[in-house]
Design a protein around this nucleic acid. Structure first.
Lengths: 182, 182
DNA sequence: TTGCTTACTTACTAATAAGTAAATACATTT
DNA sequence: AAATGTATTTACTTATTAGTAAGTAAGCAA
């Protein structure tokens, strides 16, 4: 894949996750890369194409990460999952779901579909992880694994959002509560 | 207060909570109210002024609601708090914090400050509510009331966001988990 | 009745947005 | 050498944005 193309994707992801889909323009991409507006359109004809590609990238990265964790113990896998959010927090980014979901109704339909798909993949991996941990007795929680997965995703997603508004402490506090809750 | 002014505020709140701050324009307000663009600027000279007024409105409504709940038992007050989110969900709205926090860095500074203030007020009311319920033995959770308040706000906020993307069920599921967790 | 305030409208401006058509430069293939 | 494909720029269009300056109609106040 072209170097320019991946630089666009990388910058685009950063912009979505720090400003949101409607608060960045192709100019915000072309300027720092020292290329012209039309060069961005060459790789991603419409902004929706770019948005879809960024979500696809994130899905692919999640698949790859979780696949590489397969040999590890269940509790380690869970810890690595929460570390994804820790890494986002330290960059001042929110997660893609947190960035895009509030404006879901305004997103181009292909982006809506990809985002839904991303949510399914994350929830189903996490549900399986929690289920396995419960069976292995390394996790202990009363709810179903599916309900627990939803609460965990929700807590971590929000912790990144609230962290921006309310300050540093809140992310760590919520992450700690999530860790203790399984 | 002028009827037009409050109609603008109401519509503006709906637009922010269904589309986000950067995905609506003064035209989206003036058109359904059958007034001109400049009439909106008459009441709210800049978009930031409108944004600030909407957050102030929400803070005032929260203060009024919680004040009116004062005579009620603690667990009833908590239930009414979660019902705020239920009502949002049934309208397809997210909460103001969920709508604005992802684009926090791009918001005008006065809006950032008001949003921070709103978060403080909600968290401190909820912390006090949980603290009291613990002392009265109607709630039972191991964490500090402050940590619990953060987790509860986080879970409810995200449940509205995830609900839009993942579908109806997830809000109810998370709300139920929150209810059981106190 | 004159002046002032309230609540707008008319008619703009300047900036920015996404997107496109056509030209160009360079490398590779035929 | 000619043709082709890839990656880009130039130069533009069309639409929308927030915001403003000037005017107006109605009501109230001195």
């Amino acid at each position: 894949m072209s170097e320019t193309r991946s630089a666009i994707l990388e910058l685009g992801e950063m912009l979505i996750r720090t400003r949101g889909y409607h608060a960045f323009s192709y100019h915000d991409i072309s300027r720092p890369l020292a290329i012209k507006n039309a060069a961005v359109h060459y790789y991603f004809p419409t902004k929706a194409d770019l948005g879809v590609a960024i979500i696809e990238n994130t899905i692919a990265a999640f698949r790859q990460a979780t696949a590489s964790w397969q040999p590890l113990p269940t509790e380690k896998q869970f810890e690595l999952y929460t570390r994804i959010y820790q890494d986002s927090q330290s960059k001042g980014w929110v997660c893609l779901m947190g960035a895009l979901s509030p404006a879901y109704d305004t997103l181009p339909q292909p982006m809506q579909e990809k985002l839904h798909r991303m949510g399914q993949e994350i929830l189903s991996w996490l549900t399986a992880c929690l289920e396995r941990g419960k069976a292995e007795q390394v996790f202990n929680f009363p709810e179903s694994a599916q309900a627990k997965a939803q609460v965990v995703v929700a807590a971590l997603l929000s912790s990144l959002l609230l962290n921006k508004v309310m300050g540093e402490g809140i992310f760590q506090s919520i992450r700690e509560a999530v860790r203790k809750g399984v």
